[in-house]
Nucleic acid binder design. Sequence first.
DNA 1: ACTTTATCTTGACAGTGACAAGATACGAAT
DNA 2: ATTCGTATCTTGTCACTGTCAAGATAAAGT
Lengths: 195, 195
Amino acid sequence: MSEKTYHHGDLRLALVNAGRRILEREGLEALTLRACAREAGVSHAAPQHHFRNLGELIAAIAASGFDDFVTALDASAAGAGNADAKLQAMGIAYVGFALAHPALYRIMFGIVAMQSESEAFRMARGRAWDQLLDGVTAAHGPTTADSDAVMIWSLVHGHAMLRLAQCMPGEARSDQMLRHALRTVSAGFDARKPE
Amino acid sequence: MSEKTYHHGDLRLALVNAGRRILEREGLEALTLRACAREAGVSHAAPQHHFRNLGELIAAIAASGFDDFVTALDASAAGAGNADAKLQAMGIAYVGFALAHPALYRIMFGIVAMQSESEAFRMARGRAWDQLLDGVTAAHGPTTADSDAVMIWSLVHGHAMLRLAQCMPGEARSDQMLRHALRTVSAGFDARKPE
DNA sequence: ACTTTATCTTGACAGTGACAAGATACGAAT
DNA sequence: ATTCGTATCTTGTCACTGTCAAGATAAAGT
């Protein structure tokens, strides 16, 4: 739909998708309002009526990214066995998503989206957090679930960011190092409650 | 020195310091070549002769940030008792530095500096990593020190980034959550080797 | 059918990074 | 000490950006 009419139909969505395409194809610095407008086939000022400024477009792209993110984590958890295996699988999938969509991932946790007041962005990000919290609760109980979830989130997020920043010594072994870290966390949780 | 002569004296350093001042005062998006030139009191094209492009200036600023970073971590470790306490103190100081200099910290781990080919940046970042590796080796032995160091780095880096992105549920308790995480990691390490 | 409103276009403006060409002053060689 | 080469800084320019304003077009409501 939305072919050559004067009114686009759903330009808002088209701009978000155009932005995501640009991100994958050319990276962060190529993501400009005008580039998105070009990619969507509209004039340079058309986005004004759907996003007050560049930050809001970026926030919308980030929200769209979080939707896919949650979907990917869900799928990985569904393919695993017990609760602990699900949590480990989510950790692997978390980093996998970041590595597969580096520019998008950076935007999802960047300042611009954060500083925007987009409610959709906050909701989408909140869903990701809830999903992680559920996974931790299922695997290690609700007692210190929020602290534990923050810890695991920190671990996988930090791991992903460091790899994106090419800080990792021994890039080849980094997948193995991630599994090592996830196992160690699990051991730390279990060591705490003798059970 | 370097008052009102035509030749500045050490414009390169002056630009880096100007950039850091702008970062602290106005944040990331205010950090432009022209703004640094203004802050240093030179014309808009003066930086060309010291940095080929904006990325190289940013890399130099990031390198300067890593220098201070290493100094701060060193100081925190010096103030702690045994090796494990030193490592914990470094973790706290790590996050503390990120929270105290959010814009600088983002640049230090951002794409722009990473994509630059600045050798000084890579060296400064390498020193930070070596310092962390030494701390882990001292506290938990050299057997899996690199994996363990990657894990701790991921944890504190992720924790810092998530707090900068205001992702933390319960901001008030996040310091406590950090200590919780550092203790859990330590417990995980110890649980692995029964000793 | 007419009006109102939302959407898109065209045009403009200041600010940016980068380049080129000219001005200035330091340093080295004579 | 003078001269010359060169590094440094300035001025001017260009394409590009985000944002605003005003006009054109089409959809929706009355």
